[in-house]
Design a protein around this nucleic acid. Structure first.
Lengths: 343, 343
DNA sequence: TTGAAAGCGCTAACAG
DNA sequence: CTGTTAGCGCTTTCAA
């Protein structure tokens, strides 16, 4: 609207000129400071600012120690709905506190993650939520070194000596209740199909599966753990392996990750293997596609909403009190009943 | 590593001290400027910087007219895989050019979008990709006023007098080829289930549907357009309406949006209405869940990858040459054949 | 080839 | 109550 003579963006100085006051006053009007300003002056400033379209430069304001107004969420698997959904919620919560948040995807690549974090440090973000690639702790050093408050989301660190603020869900419990659900239904030959990865979350799931078997008095040789990469193809391959032993050796399977689950279920579908008639199934996770499968799958549902809220709250909290002792919050999963288990 | 005495983050000055040189030299070392610096001095600076963990403050550097290193992508429906996929690609392309990009979701809410854009202006982003809420042009004024280069993605503006840089796909053509595919298969009673929205994309699809019918000599009274809100529930409702007239009046349907499609297909599934036996189906869009439905759906696939690349390239281009004339790029869709059409 | 110094837009004492 | 002014971390003349 306003004819801007120069290419320069409009500054506090322009507003001060226009309103016939000092830049200090303008600054105070636009900070929520205590300083009292006579209503008519404030009015004049606001009006002048509106007329020339002034918007405070957050970058400039941050270099004098003010908050930057920028947060970041760095996840390793952005495509994973579990993370996507939490990201969306975190962003919207942070927005209510006046932040802009940048979403970053490391794609499970540690180098990439490091690059991303360096860029974020350069941006002097106010805080960061990190779901580390491969559950590697190394890159958190960057954040600590630059005193950037952060909370670790979902990906815990194997044998860490440090205490991080952490929000995650109980992977052990997820697999445990999944397996127990099948045991309760009478199954004894239960396989576990999962991701072959060094990250602890994955190992915890296998442990949960094993513990459930133990609780029902099944010995180690009754275990049947299939692992592979995190892909549909791997899932198909596992389903193929399982179907060779169907009925004979295996009557049920815990699908430990939805990417793998997708492949396995497609294989079943395409080879006339029906659930729950031919094989009983529980899947960990609730991807959107699960909603269109019939019969409905019994799934392990993680409290994505609560986790997102807790994570955002914890980060905002930690930004306010950086030196407070770290907090760990582990959430439990629940069963979302379907019709994929034969009694 | 380095013992940082103060809470202050390490600055160019610290590096200069440590390296025994001036801040100007340090600044030059960290800018890719022409100025020649003797190799050993440069070495010393780099070493000092590494030792105390210096990372240039992008915020401070930007206030003297340097690029900010920040881009934004603002979409109206972040949950929509069409947008999500493009976002992920755009982010990764921009990263290669050294940018951090922030992803924002306006949730089809114009107020929200305005708030987001104001925050982004405050951050003095270098550029923005915008898929406007409700296809409303108003908020683009903010961007123009602050001279922020932007490209409009997918959502065009009804009767705009302005020329924006634009990348989108041909909604008319998408619906046209979908409908024609059904006509080619011999169907004559074809319904269209779509979103009841003011945005032009939506109207274009209906127009495409109509044009195809016209081409096959079908009159206006042979049209059957169902519209409703963008939700699964609406889809179910439309399917219910259609199934009342199945066989009788309608033998095929074009599902114009995947949210609606999902509801409709679930309704069909849950009521024993099979495709392609009982009804032939083409869906516009390729959500992930489509991959698990059997029989496979015939879908209209938009060139998400190409569009993302084009959008990112165009924005980067426009940042370099802000005054160049606007570019419009419209992409065509293609048919992804499935088995949901009865010949 | 390097350094001193004047800003950039904004904040926060400190005076008035 | 309001204005002056000294920075914040960095870039960029301009001299040396």
């Amino acid at each position: 609207m306003s004819a801007q003579k120069t290419g320069r963006s409009v500054t506090i100085k322009d507003v001060a000129n226009k309103a016939g006051t000092s830049i200090a006053t303008v600054s105070y009007v636009f900070s929520n400071n205590e300083r009292y300003i006579r209503p008519d002056l404030r009015e004049r400033v606001l009006k002048a600012a509106a007329e020339i379209g002034y918007v405070k430069n957050a970058a400039a304001s941050s270099i004098r120690g003010k908050r930057r107004g920028l947060l970041a969420v760095v996840v390793a698997q952005f495509g994973n709905t579990f993370f996507t959904r939490m990201c969306v919620e975190i962003v919207s919560l942070a927005r209510q506190e006046g932040y802009v948040v940048t979403l970053c995807n490391s794609d499970e690549n540690v180098e990439q993650e490091r690059l991303i974090l360096e860029r974020l440090v350069a941006q002097r973000i106010d805080g960061c939520i990190l779901s580390s690639a491969l559950s590697l702790e190394d890159n958190t050093a960057l954040l600590r070194q630059h005193r950037i408050p952060y909370v670790v989301l979902e990906r815990s660190f194997p044998n860490s000596t440090l205490q991080h603020d952490f929000v995650g869900h109980d992977n052990f419990q997820s697999a445990f209740i999944a397996t127990r659900r099948l045991l309760d239904a009478g199954h004894r030959r239960i396989a576990f199909a999962g991701w072959d990865s060094p990250i602890p979350n994955v190992r915890d799931r296998v442990d949960g599966y094993r513990a459930a078997l133990r609780e029902y008095g099944l010995a180690a040789d009754q275990e049947n753990v299939l692992t592979g990469e995190l892909s549909e193809a791997a899932g198909r391959w596992m389903a193929e392996k399982l179907s060779g032993t169907l009925g004979a050796a295996v009557t049920a399977v815990v699908l430990g990750h939805h990417d793998i689950a997708k492949g396995a279920l497609l294989y079943f579908q395409d080879h006339g293997i029906r659930w729950p008639e031919d094989i009983s199934v529980v899947m960990i996770g609730t991807p959107e596609w699960a909603g269109v499968l019939r019969p409905r799958l019994t799934c392990i549902q993680r409290p994505e909403h609560e986790m997102a809220v807790a994570t955002a709250a914890l980060l905002l909290e930690r930004i306010k009190t950086p030196e407070a002792p770290p907090v760990q919050r582990i959430f439990s999963s629940s069963i979302l009943e379907g019709h994929s288990i034969r009694p």
